Computed example of a mutant assay.
Amino acid sequence: MLSMKLEKPLFYKNKFALRFELGPTDISVWADSKRENINEEYFRVASNRAASIYRSAFSQNDEIKVCYQILSDGRQKIKKSDYFFKLFCKLSGKPIVFSEHRDIYRDDLEYKRYCIKRVTISDVYTQDLNEDEVILALINSDFGCRGPSLHGQLFLINCTKGLTLHIYDDRGMDIVADSKKPLESIYHEQNSSLLDYDRDYMDRLFALT
Rank of each mutant, 00 (worst) to 15 (best):
Y105S: 11
N61K: 15
L156V: 15
D108Q: 05
D174Q: 02
I64V: 12
F85S: 13
N37H: 09
L195H: 06
L154M: 07
Y187E: 03
Q127A: 11
R113I: 05
S179F: 11
L163H: 05
M1V: 07
H151L: 08
S52G: 09
F58C: 08
H188C: 08
D62S: 10
L22P: 10
K13H: 15
D169K: 04
E21P: 00
A137E: 08
Y68V: 10
V66C: 11
K13Y: 13
K8F: 05
S28W: 02
Y125N: 07
L18H: 05
F206C: 03
H151G: 12
N158P: 08
H188R: 14
K86I: 10
K79F: 03
E7H: 10
K86G: 09
S92K: 15
L136F: 04
S3E: 14
C67F: 00
P24N: 07
H188D: 09
G172Q: 10
D174S: 14
R113D: 13
C145M: 11
D123P: 02
F58G: 01
S3R: 14
R106T: 09
F58S: 01
F11N: 00
R118P: 00
Q60F: 11
L6R: 06
N48L: 07
N191Y: 15
Y42H: 14
L183D: 06
R113Q: 12
I116G: 00
I27L: 15
F20R: 10
I186G: 08
T120C: 15
S59A: 12
S141R: 13
K5W: 07
N130D: 15
L150K: 04
H151N: 10
A50I: 09
F43I: 06
D32Y: 04
K5S: 13
P182N: 03
